[in-house]
């Protein structure tokens, strides 16, 4: 696809997702606020799967995951793996995802994030022997709750940028 046909917006949203994923909270907030951080990268990926599925290439998704690994200081390949799993699952059903309403989409997003985060947790616990923690459940729920509020502005931006 010609990147000039609004493709920059895809890049910008993914960059924004990475930025929001590392933006740290002001010091002094209690720790549990950090557990509620939405999974921004899966959220943005889900948006593009629903809106412009042909813009999502598995290899670029994996490469973005590599960047995310470095940024979040997680094992290399971990986020790429999770995002590719999510992209494959999402792309295999993108026509249905487009048809259902935002709340059903939010539910689908919740399931996808839960599945990929669980896969991530399992890989980490296998590779590093760290115990599997359930913290991702809260973050997945926040992600799903945010979806109905973000999809409108993102769609508007897509329309303005003429992303085809």
């Amino acid at each position: 696809m010609n990147p000039l046909r609004g493709g920059w917006l895809v890049g910008v949203t993914f960059f924004a997702a990475a930025t929001l994923a590392v933006a740290h909270l002001p010091a002094g907030l209690p720790d549990w606020v950090g557990w509620l951080r939405p999974a921004w990268a899966p959220l943005v990926l889900f948006f593009w799967i629903v809106e412009r599925p042909h813009r999502i290439g598995l290899i670029s998704v994996w490469a973005f995951g590599l960047l995310l690994d470095v940024v979040l200081s997680e094992p290399l390949g971990l986020n790429g793996f999770a995002l590719v799993v999510m992209a494959v699952l999402g792309l295999s059903a993108y026509e249905r995802l487009r048809m259902i309403n935002v709340f059903q989409q939010a539910a689908a997003l919740l399931l996808l994030v839960l599945a990929t985060e669980l896969a991530k947790g399992i890989v980490v616990s296998l590779a590093q022997g760290a115990p599997l923690s359930g913290q991702f459940v809260a973050s997945a729920m926040v992600t799903a709750v945010l979806w109905p509020f973000l999809v409108g502005p993102l769609r508007w931006a897509t329309w303005r940028a003429g992303t085809a």
Partner: peptide
């Protein structure tokens, strides 16, 4: 392929 690459990277890095 990508999954295998990920697993390989994680294993090497561990």
């Amino acid at each position: 392929t990508l999954a295998a690459a990920s697993v390989l990277l994680i294993a090497i890095e561990a």
